[in-house]
Write a protein that binds this DNA or RNA. Structure first.
Length: 478
RNA sequence: GGGGUGGUGAUCUAGCUUGGUAUGAUACCAGACUUGGGCUCUGGAUGUCCUGGGUUCAAAUCCCAGCCGCCCCA
């Protein structure tokens, strides 16, 4: 309803552009609680679509949904040392219940490992109870000091967290890697966002994990954005929380665990990647409205509306998400701009011309081009949407491939990473001290360590010159 | 922590130097007209001018104190 003109250009002021586009497209809004976002129906619908796709794959892996409490007692949170040290600075606390001070303050979950694993220790007694594969869709609160960006950085995050327990390290490792690949696949297929899949370095690893996997996507300015993570927790938590099982030989063992999460941030990455100066550009697979029909009224209205309704009906039969905007209090031109702002992938105008010719034009948001389809062959619309989805993904893949550069020269590496001219792929020693040195020089950290098993592009670490043990990607991060 | 800058109907904003009871646009409501790229017209509703104090016949405007926001640097 409030389509204000976008006064900012994406290239000139991406932050203002981003905020204006998301708020005026009615995706999200700011609330009076600083750092907390309101997700409006149009934006929430996209989350639902992404969520359903993920949930489907989780269930295919045998994962079940569950729900654990929002509040975590302080001593429970403190049970795993590294974990609490990692999260302590950004935990929000509840200290009062009604008027009474609580005896023990309660943390609003920054993540649910601790509260869930307390239950796990009660539920897991035998090898027959394993694997335990649970997920929950919820929100977590992290009191980050840095300023808020809709979807990308907020104090309350909508996400899912999966928490699995296994009898062996091998199973846990397989699960952690499997889930990161599920994330990469869904983000790619639904959001048309390509990502780098890899492992986190020691200093970037999740607090309490043995190994962390990540999918990293990239903003238009080449800054990396972590979109999803999957952790092999080893036995760190099972030892702190005493999660043990008896095996076939009647011997006690601590379980091996994983946790993995993907948040709404992935949508933010998609908005950033595809939006333009006219507004959002949504990939068809995540668009709440895939096709909008705008009747051009004036003369022969009855006929025009009849044809419009028929198109809607046909497209719905094809399983498409269609909207007919027959409001009379807005002009056609107003609607054109409105749906471009909202990023609707395909628009069909139905006026006298179309009624007379029996042909309609599909206006494609992503390419700003048109395509003629006969009213008799509306099934083709679906194919057009699929092609748009594919084109979008391919364009981003090409861009990502262009931005990643293999660096062999230290000075060139420092220069190019410092200025965010590229994402550097380098041979690296993997040491914490070395990463700290790189960070000091370039302000960049490692985003992912390759797990694709390709050969090292060089034998010596790009930065410190010691023996390299991995290929790593370095870039500025959001 | 240091420096800068700002706070005016729902939103953006003019007015502030030189005090005289707040301007314009958008959005909103009603009606008419219109609909092929953000129509037009008429009418309407909406203000603790950040807060408190001071000066003055009179303060959005000047003075003092405070609160809040944003930007830059550490």
């Amino acid at each position: 309803m409030c389509a204000e003109k976008i006064k900012y250009k994406k290239e000139e002021n991406i932050i203002e552009w981003y905020n204006t586009v998301l708020t005026s497209a009615e995706v999200a809004d700011f609330s009076s609680v600083k750092g907390f976002t309101v997700y409006r129906p149009y934006g929430y619908r996209m989350w639902e679509i992404l969520r359903d796709a993920l949930d489907y794959d989780f269930k295919a892996e045998g994962v079940q949904n569950s729900y654990f409490p929002l509040l975590i007692p302080e001593k429970l949170l403190k049970k795993e040392k590294e974990h609490v040290e990692g999260f302590a600075p950004e935990v929000a606390w509840v200290t009062k219940g009604g008027n009474a001070e609580l005896e023990e303050k309660l943390a609003i979950r920054p993540t649910s490992e601790t509260i869930m694993y307390e239950s796990y220790s009660k539920w897991i007694k035998s090898y027959r109870d394993l694997p335990l594969l649970l997920n929950q869709w919820n929100t977590v609160v992290r009191w980050e000091i840095k300023d808020t960006r809709l979807f990308l950085r907020g104090k309350e995050v909508l996400w899912q967290e999966g928490h699995c327990a296994f009898a062996t390290n091998e199973e846990a490792e397989r699960n952690a890697e499997k889930m990161i690949r599920v994330y990469a696949k869904i983000v790619r297929e639904v959001l048309a966002v390509p990502s780098l899949v890899g492992m986190k370095s020691e200093s970037e690893r999740f607090a309490g994990a043995v190994k962390s996997y990540t999918i990293e996507t990239f903003m238009p300015n080449n800054y990396a954005l972590q979109c999803g993570t999957s952790h092999n927790l080893g036995q760190n938590f099972s030892k702190s929380f005493d999660i043990k099982f008896l095996d076939e030989k009647n011997e006690w063992h601590h379980v091996f665990q994983t946790s993995w999460g993907l948040s709404m941030r992935a949508l933010g990455a998609m908005f950033m990647l595809y939006g333009d100066d006219r507004g959002l550009v949504l990939p068809p697979n995540v668009a709440p409205t895939q096709v909008v029909i705008v009747p051009i009224l004036g003369k022969n209205d009855e006929e025009i509306l009849k044809v419009s309704a028929k198109i809607v009906e046909e497209l719905k039969k094809e399983g498409l998400r269609v909207l007919l905007d027959d409001r009379t209090n807005y002009t056609a031109g107003w609607k054109f701009n409105e749906y471009e702002l909202k990023g609707v992938p395909v628009r069909i105008d139905v006026g006298q011309k179309e009624v007379a010719s029996g042909e309609i034009k599909l206006k494609i948001r992503f390419t700003s081009s048109s395509e003629i389809v006969s009213l008799e062959r509306l099934k083709e619309v679906k194919a057009v949407l699929n092609r748009v989805q594919k084109d979008m993904l391919e364009s981003s893949e090409r861009r990502l491939a262009r931005v990643i550069k293999e660096e062999r020269d230290k000075e060139s590496f420092i220069t190019n990473v410092s200025s965010a001219a590229e994402i550097a792929k380098v041979a690296w020693c993997g040491r914490k001290e070395c990463e700290a040195g790189i960070k000091e020089k370039t302000k960049a950290v490692s985003r992912a360590i390759s797990i694709e098993g390709e050969k090292l592009i060089d034998k010596k670490c790009i930065f410190c010159g010691r023996d390299a043990v991995c290929d790593a990607y370095f870039s500025q991060s959001y």
